[in-house]
């Protein structure tokens, strides 16, 4: 008994792990399944029949295309803002010592710790006070608050591992600040920035709460889905869209994961 417990008498353990994983992921598979059901009105199980027609129907729905386009635009611009500001902020925090450094570092990370609803309400009242009309750009501003954090966290970890002497070495070999940035700093933090940007993109792409508070008439894809669930027209179309959302967010996150991991192992063998 003793030895089998050590080597893996974990049939029970294996089972509960499997059960846990299924519990997490079966519902997602069900969403996929119902994207192909022939039954339009309800989630009947098992589905009475399977069909590809919803893909075509979704393809033809103008509102889906608009929402998808808006979400892609918002996520891209928010991620770019996140990369720019996050990288600059990480560079400042990691390379210099100044009064209030810790406070700034904390304030930058805060938006991701704050519940989205608090961020949303705060932004909404701030926009109203400043009489900024809600638009495409207010959504982007809302999303940028957490995009900056994601990139910042990635970049600062990389800066910490990049020796200050690399910059000095570059200067010593005749490079001025811009050349050092271009040939030494950027290549060293590039993967961290790309990974951070991908995560930020994925987070922004499926964001609901902050968007609800900062959008005007615009409907991003997640908001569109929420509305569809409340007032369904063609249920399976929502499921098709859900599949697209999973793919659009899953691939960048997977990419970011591999980028960071490969880089990590590369560095560890140094």
């Amino acid at each position: 008994m003793q030895s089998s417990a050590k080597t893996g008498a974990s049939i029970g353990l294996k089972f509960s792990v499997l059960a846990g994983l299924l519990f997490l992921h079966l519902p997602v598979l069900l969403i996929f399944l119902y994207a192909f059901t022939t039954e339009e009105k309800s989630y009947q199980f098992p589905p009475p029949g399977l069909t590809f027609k919803w893909l075509a129907v979704t393809w033809g729905r103008q509102d889906v295309w608009e929402a998808l386009g808006l979400s892609l635009k918002v996520a891209s611009i928010a991620a770019i803002i996140g990369v720019l500001l996050g990288a600059l902020c990480a560079a400042a925090i990691s390379r210099s010592r100044f009064f209030g450094r810790e406070v700034i570092s904390l304030l930058v990370i805060l938006p991701i710790a704050l519940p989205g609803i608090v961020t949303g309400i705060a932004l909404r009242s701030a926009f109203s006070l400043a009489e900024i009309p809600f638009s495409f750009w207010t959504i982007i501003l809302g999303h940028a608050t957490f995009c900056v954090v994601v990139v910042y966290n990635n970049a600062i970890a990389r800066f910490r591992r990049t020796h200050g002497s690399l910059i000095e070495a570059s200067m010593d070999l005749g490079a001025n600040s811009f050349q050092t940035l271009r040939y030494v700093i950027l290549p060293n933090i590039a993967t961290a920035l790309v990974a951070g940007g991908m995560l930020a993109f994925a987070l922004s792409f499926d964001e609901v709460i902050v968007t609800t508070f900062t959008s005007g008439q615009q409907t991003t894809l997640p908001i569109w889905m929420l509305e569809e669930l409340v007032r369904p027209r063609q249920r399976p179309v929502t499921n098709v869209v859900a599949m697209v959302v999973v793919l659009v967010t899953f691939l960048p996150i997977l990419g970011a994961y591999y980028l960071i991991r490969e880089d990590e192992s590369d560095r560890n063998t140094r």
Binding site: H163, S165, L166, E168, A169, S170, M171, D172, L173, G174, A175, N176, Q179, Y183, V184, P187, N188, D266, R267, R270
Partner: peptide, 30 residues
């Protein structure tokens, strides 16, 4: 970067993203 001295660092400070040739060529490239 304008002084006529060059330094060999204690931790060598080789650029990890460049190969040996690129590292050595860096000063000339600049």
């Amino acid at each position: 970067y304008r002084r006529k001295v060059n330094i060999v660092f204690q931790d060598y400070a080789l650029f990890p993203h460049m190969n040996v040739s690129e590292n050595v060529a860096y000063g000339l490239l600049i």
